[in-house]
Design a protein around this nucleic acid. Sequence first.
DNA 1: ACAACTACCTACAGTATTGTCAACAGTGAG
DNA 2: CTCACTGTTGACAATACTGTAGGTAGTTGT
Lengths: 201, 201
Amino acid sequence: MAVKEKRVRRKPEEARALILDAAEKSMVADGPAGIRLQDVAKAAGVSHPTILHHFGSREGLVRALNTRTLEDFRAALLANMKATTGNGDDGIALSFAMYRNGLAQRMLWHLQANEDPKGRLDIFDSIVDALHELRKNFARPGHEPDIADTRNVVHMVTVAALGDALIGSRLRQAGEKEREAGAAFEKWFSDLITLFMTAKA
Amino acid sequence: MAVKEKRVRRKPEEARALILDAAEKSMVADGPAGIRLQDVAKAAGVSHPTILHHFGSREGLVRALNTRTLEDFRAALLANMKATTGNGDDGIALSFAMYRNGLAQRMLWHLQANEDPKGRLDIFDSIVDALHELRKNFARPGHEPDIADTRNVVHMVTVAALGDALIGSRLRQAGEKEREAGAAFEKWFSDLITLFMTAKA
DNA sequence: ACAACTACCTACAGTATTGTCAACAGTGAG
DNA sequence: CTCACTGTTGACAATACTGTAGGTAGTTGT
């Protein structure tokens, strides 16, 4: 017969993180509507009332999930900006990399849940500003680069990286290894932007 | 007191389409997991057993929804290719336009539901081929354009159009009118590709 | 050691959701 | 007109899901 497990008692933050990790998988796979407390509980190794204890309600869990998604997104963006030294190449690669692990899907749900469109816009504004400063350094003397171009580049990189994270692997050729084919596209994309930047410098 | 409505009797295809239209809204908003027969029934103006009569089960409804999504997607792509005369500009605009009305979200769910990655790949192969023929016509004499470039362009346009359909409006500046800002980006994007194409011709 | 605190659990209640059934009612063929 | 066919429905059954209640058991501070 089964030996009775000693009951574990975690620190609240630990338990919350454990549960959020499990819930995140449901979220990415099926969206917020697909989250079942029983399923999440089983995946996290707790009973479902424990989830309610920590998050108050199913709704509270979903809210916490979306909050963490936004935090992850901001963190990924900031890390991205810090790591980008200036040559541009790594900025593209990082933009594509940051969406891995379902962050693309999660952000989609976050945006759908929060009709309020502000808070994330200023992040993009600051990215545009930072990139524009970089462009000024590479511009030919006496030539001011167009801010609209900078904005469009950031917009393009953002939507392309998101789109690639979501469906990129489905578009690659049958025989290709995902890893290499993805990297090849990123390289090509990066070169394209370099081409554009120098042409417009 | 409420007058008793005369019971309507539709043709099967008509009823199915009516129900699918209603279910599609739930699908786009909340994903397949968010579909509730009662909700769909109310939205479609039928009782929920009617849905089961036509689709067998909830699962059957979702399958029918995904099937129709793929059909819509193929139709949109084909219409897109036919309408593209050759200058390239309209191809971009159409690529962005075809994802409107939630087709982007729906395709995402379709892909997630169908692990099988083939059937859609050949569509893209034929698009790549078609575009490559076009490129050959504009190449300088004796110069063969690189097929990898063509593939990458198609890949980029596809992921960018999808990404823009999903989150584009959230990235635009606060004051901008969605319609115009979107069109401006499409124009800029189109010019970028033209720039690249001529540089590589 | 013990007392307060609270993370955790089992059992249960109430509601929501899918699916079944039998009957009803348009529709078209003969 | 009559009848077979089937789209449609309300009522019901079975299950799934969220949330509550009350008690158990680690942990921490005194």
